[in-house]
Nucleic acid binder design. Structure first.
Lengths: 190, 190
DNA sequence: CGATTCTTTGAAAACAGTCAATCTGTGTGG
DNA sequence: CCACACAGATTGACTGTTTTCAAAGAATCG
């Protein structure tokens, strides 16, 4: 399981075996069943989580009980509540496994220490954060500019194949529309 | 002008005079008239820009000629096209002064060097990036979950007073609705 | 003051949401 | 293996919201 993360890191930069070992030493693996919750809204989040297998969703629940998916995290990507992690406040989002999944957890303290001690690691994390910022910006752009159909097309293009792994109502929730609307959009596209 | 930035940095962490001097050495100031463009979509962006006075907007123009405001940057905040900066690709967004403004520019190379050489600076920038990520996430949440009125209310709450400095059609564009809709939302709120 | 930009309003059309029913596929227990 | 329950997807009719288009009114700037 750790080797998935090691492979990921090595694809981003050159890590020595000693460095990888140091990272492994503070990593803990956690297997999640389908629908199992990694973080519940209201709890405080103190980890950085890397998804080695499966897929998770991060969502908010509104006053009417409707869920709004803020983010998907599939294998080789990160999950977590950045706000809670940085501020120590209770998380506003719930993170839940969509499929049977495995995540690799590194505690905030260990993580920050790794960044300080290993320049390569710091560099890699930095790049990832920037990429994540860019992705957020693209999503904002889509959300405020596109029609329902354009949003769906952009989603398919950005995550090819991924839509097949997800129930459609989750895609709809991610795109900010109802299941029914997405269903009709799909019909009109054929 | 640089003292605005120095004050900002000192409010975030302790910088020695020598450190501040080193930062000043690679900073260049640029005054912008109202409507003056700092970055035009299609050009490559190679700076980090800090706004010391005034306010800018970052926007995309769609096929129909409509503008969609991705971001506002007022005094004591940052502006730039992260995607272009990181990738070297042409910028997708245009950055333009809403009011007469002053920005402090640090070239990408100098900036990265400052981060490497000055741990305090690196730390501060890191915090800012995380905060920016959190802000993006909040905005995504609002964009996919809220009604027009809720979006406007959230905007007023998040940037109190700022709405007064902006033409309303820009607020509307930022929130992903038409000027007419925002005008009607405001009427119904009274 | 005149020109321009911004805001508001109304009416119609397009779009997306809601509610309720039906259809589909999957998996479980008998 | 079948019957059934269940979750997900689709559809139709209706409602509500937002956009579009056009025009008029207000505010701002040189």
């Amino acid at each position: 399981m750790f080797d998935v993360f090691a492979k990921y890191l090595l694809s981003k930069a050159d890590f020595t075996p000693a460095e990888l070992q140091r990272i492994e030493a503070v990593s803990q693996l956690k297997a999640l069943r389908k629908r199992e919750v990694l973080l519940r809204a209201g709890d405080v989040w103190t980890y950085n989580a890397f998804v080695t297998h499966g897929g998770l969703r991060t969502y908010a629940t509104d006053a009417k009980g409707a869920e709004h998916i803020i983010n998907f995290s599939v294998e080789n990507w990160w999950a977590g509540d950045q706000q809670s992690l940085a501020s120590g406040e209770p998380a506003r989002y719930t993170i839940e496994a969509i499929e049977p999944s495995t995540v690799l957890l590194i505690h905030k303290q260990d993580f920050d220490e790794l960044r300080r001690a290993l320049p390569v690691f710091d560099q890699v994390i930095n790049t990832i954060i920037y990429r994540s910022l860019t992705a957020s910006q693209n999503r904002i752009h889509a959300a405020i500019s596109y029609s329902a159909e354009e949003k769906y097309r952009a989603f398919l293009q950005q995550f090819p194949g991924f839509a097949l792994r997800l129930p459609q109502h989750m895609v709809a929730s991610y795109l900010g529309m109802t299941t029914e609307t997405l269903s009709r959009v799909r019909r009109n596209m054929q």
